[in-house]
Design a protein around this nucleic acid. Structure first.
Lengths: 149, 149
DNA sequence: TTTATATAATTGATATATCAACTATTTTTG
DNA sequence: CAAAAATAGTTGATATATCAATTATATAAA
């Protein structure tokens, strides 16, 4: 059976776009914050907005599983961006708190992230952006439907 | 500075789409080929079509760097999907050959991959597909332009 | 034709991804 | 309530990602 090479499919384009964005974004972050990764930065942004998030909930937001999250947060605690303490309401969970060092990151990061986004989307109309979202959502929903069967 | 949470951006949608596709695709591949990964499968597809590819060229096609490629091919050689031998024309390169076991994969995989693609893209028009490609290419070219400066 | 530069691949260090098995707690339910 | 099920998180095993430094070979330039 003959099929298109992966490099000729839209999935390849999707993947190369997000990888390019991640690399670009990481480069700009590294320039001002030596040991900060995109994903660690996202964790800080989410926790800043919703301080009650559990590791599991954060994992969903950044597309990782529990195990990956445990290790990522270990690293962030070790690097002093976060502190972990007991949650007395539910002792299966942790309370995650952003440290002073973490808060400094939250001052530096947003302008850079904003710039990453706007420069990547330069010249793309609101309409195109919404089409993009709509089509991708269709693909995702096709996949979700198929996952169940 | 207040910015949108990552989960509210189109980059999040792009990432979640490709991750969902990868997971879906991997599940279907695993069902017929226990220890075959998507990326290893892609390497086989590319090598099958272009037997002269170097590790470096394959790396570009599957969005990895040389180091990752070296290790991935080590694994594939160890699992007997590929064999590595000297290239006498240029002794910096290897000649990569698909083994019998690798060729069996090449019989099993294409129908599954084809099905992954078509079921993920069900209901999406040719026009939408080309819009998707166009918009993503715009984003990529914005990023490439910025990378240079 | 030597020296410099470029290229292909490897290795070490560190971070991460994924699955499955596991612990420690709730929460549900019979 | 006690047993069963669900939930949050951890750990081990294995694969992978990335950067920087290194080796070996090939090509270009002085």
């Amino acid at each position: 059976m003959d099929i298109d090479l992966p490099s000729e499919t839209v999935f390849h384009t999707i993947e190369s776009t997000i990888k390019a964005y991640r690399k670009f974004s990481q480069k700009n972050i590294t320039a001002v914050m030596e040991d900060m990764t995109i994903d660690q930065g996202m964790v800080l942004l989410f926790l800043n907005k919703y301080p009650e998030l559990t590791q599991k909930e954060i994992a969903v937001l950044v597309f990782r599983d529990n195990a990956a999250m445990t290790r990522m947060i270990n690293t962030m605690v070790q690097k002093k961006y976060l502190s972990r303490s007991m949650n007395d309401q539910d002792r299966r969970r942790y309370k995650l708190e952003i440290t002073k060092k973490g808060k400094e990151v939250l001052n530096l990061l947003p302008p850079i992230i904003q710039n990453n986004r706007t420069s990547s989307l330069a010249g793309i109309t609101k309409n195109e952006l919404s089409q993009l979202g709509t089509i991708l959502d269709k693909i995702k929903s096709n996949i979700t439907k198929n996952q169940l069967s």
